[in-house]
Design a binder for these strands. Structure first.
Lengths: 152, 152
DNA sequence: TGAGAATATTTGCTACGGCAACTATTATAG
DNA sequence: CTATAATAGTTGCCGTAGCAAATATTCTCA
């Protein structure tokens, strides 16, 4: 429980620092970076809107508007999905690639600044422990759904 | 770096679950819980607005509005600060104490659900490592201010 | 003491995100 | 094949938070 509080606190603190570092460098906000890097990290390079919603833990509507802004800024474009005509895929433009690189530099520098007190072993442990948590979140969801269904 | 990504992801996932658990239980949002428990955890029990802003990592304006809502709901009240007439202190009302207890129950239950994959040792390590990060954030801020001053 | 800098909080304006309703397309059942 | 349900995405409306300006009070120093 205290560990969770520490996590929440450090998350908020570091995130705020990164935000400020980005604005100080006249760069777009963190949400843009998260979007751009999610698109970049996608196996296909062209994730669907709903995939982005899952990865960024954002609602569908939120994704629509975020992509709108990035598209208007010229960093992303929507392309029709060939397998499903309901669906759209987001794709980085060259300008988007460039911006992502710039933001990544600031982002990683700031992270390094704040996480330098952490040893590699600690980082490894944290990564492992928290990935277990995230992984099990899906199971919990199923439990939850099951429980609700049973109750209904 | 990957550890940080894991942290961000698990934070978002668990936070979202807790939010949903609270709304499912017809309780106020997570921000209210954070505010109430920050007031409760204050050494004096009557933190100032600016202390709350620091602890919740929220802007001053944000605190004003959040306290406004909690006050209107009858969970908090503002009292004049005796040492500094510019300042106000937030104080839990009996209804606020009661609500905090209710929300704490749901909050902790949900946390336990999602963090059950973590062992006590892991939790201890994470807590220690992340508290180091948060602690050093202040130093970094000083470094940063110093660097800016030197540059100017 | 008195002028001006610094600090604590609030307010107005704006941007961002969630939810529920809507459209368009695909999947399922009969 | 058609009707219905389910899914992908967008839109409108609302609540919430940040920022900069405004107000009130305290601090500094001459």
């Amino acid at each position: 429980m205290e560990a969770w509080r520490a996590l929440v606190t450090s998350h908020a603190a570091v995130t705020e620092r990164v935000q400020r570092a980005l604005t100080a460098a006249d760069l777009p906000p963190l949400s843009w970076f998260q979007m751009l890097s999610a698109v970049k990290r996608s196996p296909t390079g062209r994730p669907r809107m709903s995939e982005l919603a899952d990865w960024l833990t954002l609602s569908r509507g939120g994704i629509t508007k975020l992509v709108d802004r990035l598209q208007e800024a010229g960093y992303l474009q929507r392309v029709d999905c060939p397998e499903d005509r309901r669906s759209l895929q987001a794709e980085l433009t060259p300008a988007g690639e460039k911006m992502l690189a710039e933001m990544t530099a600031v982002y990683e520098a700031e992270l390094e600044r704040h996480l330098r007190t952490m040893t590699a072993e600690e980082a490894g442990l944290i990564k492992a422990a928290l990935e277990k948590v995230t992984g099990s979140t899906c199971d919990s969801a199923c439990d939850s759904a099951h429980g609700a269904a049973a109750a209904a």
